[in-house]
Amino acid sequence: MTQTEIWVYVQTNQTSVEPTSLQLITKAKEIAVNQRVVAVMPTVVSEKLINEVQEYGPDKIITLEDDRFKTATDTEIADVLYQVVSTRKPNSLLIPATVIGRSVAPRLQAMLQTGLTADCLDVYFDGDTLVQVKPTYGDDIMCEITCPDHQPQMATVRPNVFKAVKQNNDTTIEKADFEFHPETQVKASTPQSIISSAANIGDANVVVALGRGASSPAIIEKARKLAAKLGGMVGVSRPLTDSDEFGHESQIGQSGQSIAPDLLINFGISGAVQYLVGIENAKTIVSVNTDPDAPILAASDYAFVGDANDFMDNLLEQVR
């Protein structure tokens, strides 16, 4: 029996390799029982990018090189992948659940007539069957999904759930032949990178929140600096909406906005119910309060009893 292969789609732009792709190479090597790990990589002609992938030690890299990948459409990428996947028939294909990955994968799935599981949090092998673990109905319920009768078994995997680890391996690099079929009805521009500019506190990834216990002009100034440093925004609990500095649009809570940042840092907020309902969906909550019995502390992942000013100074100093 020939050795089966687990493929990882490596997403690239002109200058870099998308990090999830590397995380998936490491993960694939971890879960491979006897499968070879193959990175399949549509890319502009660039030795640097190939070398970067090699550092993560796949058994093989299949490069699909063409400078038109600079602005390739989802369909063009899917078409090229189809050409190699359909002839070489890997057992599995892991794809980063990035926007590009999640756009290319289903198109490729339809071409290949196989199954695809979206946004997995984990994958593992049960023999040659790839078990794909994904959340459903929010993150409260998990499913295990398999694709027993079709190959490749395809899954997109959420970014940053696994760590990419460099490792030495005797990697074969193969430049594969393919035809690039331009999609004539489409003109795509080169992606322009953006700096996070959440205009709305509800969309901010990081929120530094101030309450009555942290409302001096000096603290507000520092909070703005800290938010800027973290790429986030400053929000407030109700008492501060009366100040000149903040309006209703900055208010967090029942009569203000519900927020769902990855990180919320509360300073001087006691944690009235009206406030707590507005922060339920924050991923990580850090709270600083002088009152050890402030309800906000028990509603947080990290609690510090002490001076807000002091804590903020240290954050400003230590955050890079």
Binding site: A105, P106, D119, T136
Partner: peptide, 13 residues
Amino acid sequence: DADTGQVGPIVAQ
């Protein structure tokens, strides 16, 4: 609920 976002591209294909 299912969070896939796959049906659109499949239909396009």
